Simulated assay, not measured.
Amino acid sequence: MHALSLPTWWIHVTSVLEWVVAMVAVQRLGVARREGGWRWLSLAMLPALVSAMAACTWHLFDNSPNLQGLVVFQAGLTTIGNAALALAAWNLLRQQRQATP
């Protein structure tokens, strides 16, 4: 845990928690509006959450070279998460355009 300062840890942890709150908020918005696209957007946020948790785990073990595979995993999840978010946002836009006369 020595690789990061306490304020940097605080930002990492609160960012992960904030992302979880955002996922729940997006999910609830979808339920309230009865629009399934919002639920897909919330689900598409999951790879980015796991990616952030992988990064925090790597930092927790002082950026150990033994965990280099975790860094590659995290980078892959970031790529997948960005693509999933783009597709979910496009799907949401498409659904909303179809619903508007």
Rank of each mutant, 00 (worst) to 15 (best):
residue 8 T to C: 09
residue 41 L to E: 00
residue 51 S to N: 05
residue 21 V to Q: 07
residue 61 F to H: 11
residue 63 N to F: 03
residue 78 T to S: 02
residue 9 W to H: 07
residue 84 A to S: 07
residue 8 T to H: 14
residue 71 V to C: 06
residue 73 F to H: 06
residue 17 L to Y: 11
residue 62 D to A: 12
residue 1 M to C: 10
residue 27 Q to I: 07
residue 8 T to V: 14
residue 55 A to T: 01
residue 60 L to N: 07
residue 34 R to Q: 15
residue 49 L to H: 02
residue 11 I to S: 10
residue 15 S to P: 01
residue 71 V to G: 02
residue 12 H to K: 05
residue 48 A to N: 13
residue 4 L to E: 06
residue 98 Q to A: 12
residue 70 L to H: 11
residue 70 L to S: 13
residue 56 C to L: 04
residue 27 Q to S: 13
residue 22 A to P: 01
residue 53 M to I: 14
residue 89 A to L: 09
residue 7 P to V: 06
residue 26 V to W: 14
residue 73 F to E: 04
residue 10 W to Q: 12
residue 40 W to N: 02
residue 30 G to F: 11
residue 14 T to M: 12
residue 69 G to C: 12
residue 49 L to F: 08
residue 6 L to Q: 08
residue 21 V to G: 05
residue 66 N to D: 13
residue 26 V to M: 14
residue 6 L to V: 13
residue 70 L to W: 14
residue 2 H to P: 02
residue 6 L to Y: 06
residue 79 T to C: 02
residue 90 W to K: 13
residue 74 Q to W: 01
residue 2 H to I: 13
residue 24 V to G: 02
residue 30 G to R: 06
residue 100 T to E: 15
residue 17 L to M: 12
residue 100 T to M: 15
residue 33 R to I: 13
residue 36 G to P: 08
residue 24 V to D: 07
residue 74 Q to R: 08
residue 29 L to I: 15
residue 71 V to A: 03
residue 99 A to S: 15
residue 12 H to R: 03
residue 39 R to C: 02
residue 92 L to E: 02
residue 85 L to P: 00
residue 88 A to M: 07
residue 36 G to D: 14
residue 43 L to P: 00
residue 77 L to K: 02
residue 93 L to S: 12
residue 100 T to L: 15
residue 20 V to Y: 01
residue 96 Q to R: 14
residue 100 T to H: 15
residue 93 L to G: 11
residue 13 V to R: 06
residue 37 G to I: 06
residue 97 R to Y: 12
residue 84 A to Q: 04
residue 83 A to R: 05
residue 96 Q to P: 04
residue 82 N to C: 03
residue 44 A to V: 08
residue 51 S to T: 04
residue 51 S to P: 00
residue 29 L to A: 09
residue 87 L to P: 01
residue 6 L to G: 04
residue 67 L to M: 14
residue 97 R to D: 10
residue 69 G to R: 08
residue 59 H to F: 00
residue 79 T to W: 05
residue 41 L to V: 01
residue 88 A to I: 10
residue 40 W to H: 03
residue 52 A to P: 00
residue 10 W to V: 13
residue 70 L to F: 14
residue 5 S to W: 07
residue 49 L to W: 02
residue 42 S to C: 09
residue 60 L to M: 10
residue 43 L to V: 10
residue 40 W to L: 09
